[in-house]
Amino acid sequence: MEIKALFVILISTIFINNYVLSQMLGLCPFLGVSRKLDSALGMGLAVIFVMVMASFFTFLIYKYVLIPFDIAYLRTIAFILVIAGLVQFVEMVIENISPVLYHSLGIFLPLITTNCAVLGVAVLNTEAGFLNGNLGLLKAVVQGLGAGLGFTLALLLMAGIRERLEIADIPENLKGLPITFITAGLMAMAFLGFSGMKI
């Protein structure tokens, strides 16, 4: 039963409630880093990593620090500082362990602090009713993983399309952001198809 619940969370965060294309979270990096496929992949991996870590730590902090001390109203400030610290920490660790990885991921890490999808998943974890069931922490982490995977999927699709668009013949005034938004709209429409899915 619990396995099924986890699977449902994973599938619905990747496809049905895709963070970018249906909840409209994390649009800044979605538009900014989707010009090239390899940089999109790098950004996506970094986001998955940070989202899973952030889900883990923010959930623990919310459940075992903020709630018991009755200071849940400080959620926003606590989460954003945890995420900022976490990103900094991850950056330092990667730099020391694997310089190669750091060169491919490193430049994206500072951008992630202001990626609203990361704070979004942390906040949604506290509101999704994971707090009073068992396995709450695992569900939160799975939701973080799903959100990251969904974000990466959308980013990669977008990057693939935009690489093609570079050489396409587009009306002058549509170049740049407008055509990107039209593409995103069409992709969102396709993702709407998942919303009738029974799992």
Partner: peptide
């Protein structure tokens, strides 16, 4: 569909398009 995500993307795309047209 206009209240859902695609509608948001399309409407903003049209606004940005208009903005670009004005600028050019």
């Amino acid at each position: 569909i206009m209240t859902l995500a695609p509608g948001a993307f399309f409407t903003l795309a049209i606004m940005l398009w208009g903005m670009n047209a004005l600028k050019s």
